[in-house]
Design a protein around this nucleic acid. Sequence first.
DNA 1: AATGCGGGGGC
DNA 2: GCCCCAGCATT
Length: 357
Amino acid sequence: MTIQDRTLQNFNILHFQTDLLTWYSHNKRDLPWRSNQDPYTVWVSEIMLQQTKVDTVIPFYYRFLEKFPTVYALASAEEQEVLKAWEGLGYYSRARNLQHAVREVVEQYDGKVPDDPKELEGLKGIGSYTKGAILSIAYNKPEPAVDGNVMRVFSRLLNLEDDIAQPKTKKLFESIIREVISHEDPSSFNQAIMDLGATICTPKSPACMLCPVQEHCAAFELGVQEHLPIKSKAKKNKVMPYVALLLTNEQGEIAIEQRPEDGLLANLWQFPMVPVQDMDLELVEAWFLANYGMKIRLGNKQGNLKHVFSHLTWKIEIFEAECVQNSADRPEVRFVSKEELSTYPFPVSHQKMMQYL
DNA sequence: AATGCGGGGGC
DNA sequence: GCCCCAGCATT
């Protein structure tokens, strides 16, 4: 007898499926990516929805598919165009991995999104969740798609106290879902759990009195639903102080630079940033000369900006500056007009600086 | 298993 | 402030 069999021994699978799917058929959310089963558009939606709320995704989803309606359109686009369409959505490696994977689909799979688990998981940006979502939603295969919703809902249904921050816990839930998923309608089953988690079985103050599967819920029976799921704390982030420069040349053009192709905000553009200790402004001009080969004159302070990422915080002082002498020739640094700025993908933090121009 | 990777919204 | 959100890649 396996662990999940013991876990499920008092769980009425068929009754649960019926209650869940009946509720879903009458209460499912009307979402743009539910209008068809096109594997490409399902794929795009699932990538955008990673760690991102439905309401945030919707306008990006429409704009993205208007610009890149097919795998061929996305495969043949410039990466900068794709990043521009992703601008503001965050986790930008999702966009670059998606395009990389779509190009592989065009070249290796004749433009058809694979319906094979191994082939799907081999594509950049597709992990266990997204693989299961595409297989179940686009191809009606009974594969688990375990995300935060699924772990929360089933932690409560089965009163499981496993730490959902740990990778092995996700595997446990995948084996559980394989036991309980509907083989008649796996697409609706997976999406029903997500809708339930988003609207009823919410992280705080779950609406148990409205829940269609309340009678199946061990946590509700014990009154412990508010204490589940168990999740260990993330470590707190670190503050990084910077001076950002609104740096202009004699033509009134403004300096921007492209970030490295790896790491935070990879390949996006920004105004030059100087790391500072204790906001020691004396060193900014010298640091810039040493690192950019550009003589600048620091001007007036324009404002402050605090930007919080999931793992660090930028604390930025914004200064005007003039380029006095430019003996550098770095391709990632450009002087552009204000009008041209809108053609480059910028992180939100640097979009906020544009008000000072 | 642990860490890096965005940005927004709820409380 | 902290937590969460239709997670994945890398180490």
